[in-house]
Simulated assay, not measured.
Amino acid sequence: MTDFSFNPAPFLEFADDVALKRVRAIDRENFVKHDNPDFQISVHDNRQSLYEAFANDIVATILDALNEGRRPVLIVPAGPMPQYHAAARIINEQRISLKDVTFFAMDEWANELGESAPGSWEGSFQFALRSQFFARIDAELLPPDHQINFPTSATIADYGNRIADLGGADACFGGIGWNGHIAFWEPQLGQEFAGDLSAYRAASSRLVDLHPLTVAQNALTSFAGDWSNVPPRAVTIGPAEILGARRRSFWLDGDLGGGVTWQGFIARLVAHGPVNEFVPGSLLQTARSDLAVLEAIAAPLDILIN
């Protein structure tokens, strides 16, 4: 094949050519290997397997804390969503009381003025979590509403402290954005830290501007391709809350079928690239973390014009 050399687009913060070529070449066998034994990578054959395992992880985290005499604290994402359907079913079937469980949603949309999306808007993460998870759980098993927390423009400055005041989360669940973000902690935020990774790791909840790839990703996955309907900003937890959890559990389902996956490369960069402030998800390599992906994401990266 003929080689064709070029630099990545200028709006992409991470552009280490050596690292990019190295992770791009990682095959299926080596994708699941990592030098840190506390960073575990697993692969699922299909979506049902991945979502059921995700649901079981949520439930097991709750039960483990309760059995240890602790009040469980979970940081949860809005997306993917099928695992919540399964988790609600398990909770109902096993009659698991959530009265002592506290949930923190990891992020929420905001407009250009920094005003967070209301929970009544169908595109909000609060609407998604309430309708697709909490509304499916039998009322007598639900936690008090004040233990179901969503970040807002009014609460975001103190949101991280509220999690820390409870001793941090038992687990931070999430996914990886197309640009490598975790929650909505975006790559361009790394510019503020001038290579100080310690300060970066300690950064807490805040209002952020969304990266172009984040807008494109969410237009594709949640807004029927309508990038004009994706809000431009968000309120989000930061690295401090993610790394402050006892463990991290991240799930990647970005396979569109037909040989098209948007997470194959970023999964490799996050899991095997250098730990740095311009690939936020790379921080997972440094702490007790589980990364679960679909088979198509672990598969070798091939160029295929569809």
Rank of each mutant, 00 (worst) to 15 (best):
R47L: 15
V230P: 12
L304A: 13
L284N: 12
M1L: 11
G258L: 11
D57W: 11
F11W: 03
P118M: 08
A128V: 04
T152D: 08
R22E: 12
I137Q: 01
F184P: 00
E241N: 12
G264A: 04
L66W: 05
A171T: 10
F54M: 00
R247M: 05
A194W: 07
I182L: 06
G177A: 06
A271K: 08
A299L: 12
A117I: 11
P187N: 07
A128N: 07
T155Q: 08
F265H: 05
I163F: 12
T61M: 03
N36R: 02
A86R: 10
Q188M: 13
A19D: 11
K33T: 05
R130S: 08
M81N: 03
I242W: 03
G123W: 00
V235S: 13
I266R: 15
P8Y: 07
D16S: 05
V270A: 05
V279E: 09
D64Y: 04
F133M: 01
T221K: 08
D158F: 10
D107R: 04
T221L: 07
L129G: 11
P187W: 11
G114P: 03
A53L: 01
S49N: 14
P118G: 07
Q263T: 03
Y84N: 00
D3M: 11
A287N: 02
A128E: 04
P10H: 04
Q126I: 00
I242Y: 06
H34Q: 12
A296S: 10
N111G: 05
Q126G: 03
N229Q: 12
Y84I: 00
D64A: 06
V59E: 05
S97K: 01
T155V: 02
D107V: 01
S120W: 00
I96T: 04
S97N: 06
S282A: 13
A53K: 02
N218S: 11
P82N: 09
N218L: 06
P300A: 14
A287P: 14
W227H: 15
H85E: 07
R246A: 11
W178S: 11
F6Q: 14
T214C: 09
A267C: 04
P280H: 10
L291I: 08
D253T: 10
S204T: 13
L269M: 10
A183T: 02
R47E: 15
M81P: 00
A53S: 09
G225H: 15
L207A: 03
Q132P: 00
L197H: 03
E241K: 05
I41H: 15
A203W: 01
Q285G: 03
T61Y: 05
G259D: 11
I297K: 06
F265E: 05
F223Y: 14
S282D: 13
F134P: 00
N229D: 09
R24D: 14
M81C: 02
T236V: 02
L213N: 15
L304G: 12
I148V: 06
A298R: 12
G175R: 01
D3E: 15
E108G: 08
S228H: 14
R70C: 06
R268Y: 09
T61A: 10
N92V: 06
I305M: 14
K99S: 09
S120D: 08
A117N: 09
H211S: 11
A105H: 07
A65H: 03
L301H: 07
V275R: 01
F223A: 08
V76W: 01
